[in-house]
Amino acid sequence: MYIEIRDLSMMYPGASQAALDGVSMELRHGTTGLLGPNGAGKTTLIKILSTQMLPTAGQVLVDGRDLQEQRAAVRRSFGYLPQNFGAYPDLTAWEFLDYMARLSHLNHRSERSERVHQALQEVGLMNEGDRRTGTFSGGMMRRLGIAQAILTEPDFLLVDEPTVGLDPEERIRFRRILGRLSENRAILISTHIVGDISSTCEDVAVLSGGRLLFHGHPDVLVRQAAGRTWNLYVDDAGFEALSRQFNVVGVAPEGDMLAVRVVGDQDPPTGAEPVEPSLEDAYVHFMGVDVDPTELEVAVVEEAGLA
């Protein structure tokens, strides 16, 4: 599958700034991470790609066919997991997926059953199939969301902010699932959490203020942060001063001190130990923003060996 986005713009009625401003890029097989802070235009782009809304200008070609002209065909080949996903609480997981399968024109009972079975197995909900979705946790609901998205074995999967609100364990489980799914299809994952895609993406696009700032291999982004990433130990007072000078990527308490990971173009602080930059470091360096403090939990879990 090959998706070409040409000069895509979106201006919401009454808005003073475009949600998307002339975005052009190409998406191919594998996982593409769509990074950007909140309000960057990620969800707008995903909604346009998932045929939820029309762009103000521009064009999207799917295997050479215009998305807006061929909506029915595109809907058949896309899987979509929106940021706010929910299911009918009175239906069991199996029933819900069966219903979604019917909405996807999977009309043969045996085929539908097989797909639902596979999807549940894929996301690890096989034992929860007879449970009403109203009793699902947030993580289970997300996995159910992935299950419904892959029901039709789509060539292209659109995933919008998949890990928002999940606890660290679910988040990691979710990344693993996405990693597996990316083996045989194209996936566009929209997120503002770099950790979600750092291990799986072969392609990264960075949006900010509706504009595409970067699109390329993650290594290119990472190389930009090489020699500009350090670990060091500071006390509370030192952290204050440090955070004013550098972009803080990570913080972890160690005894009375704080182990801090920073990135910046300035000279390294006293006692700083240079380290190899990660995609997250590179993204922080590129965007010049501090990392989301909630990511610290992920770091802790990863260190504990779950990642």
């Binding site: 939820q52 929106p82 706010n84 299911a87 979604m100 909405l103 996807s104 039709t152």
Partner: peptide, 22 residues
Amino acid sequence: AADQRVRAAEVIGARPVSTVEL
């Protein structure tokens, strides 16, 4: 309203089923 309330409207909207069928 039920679709929107349970936040299933988007995934339903992205399905290949036509609006008339739905």
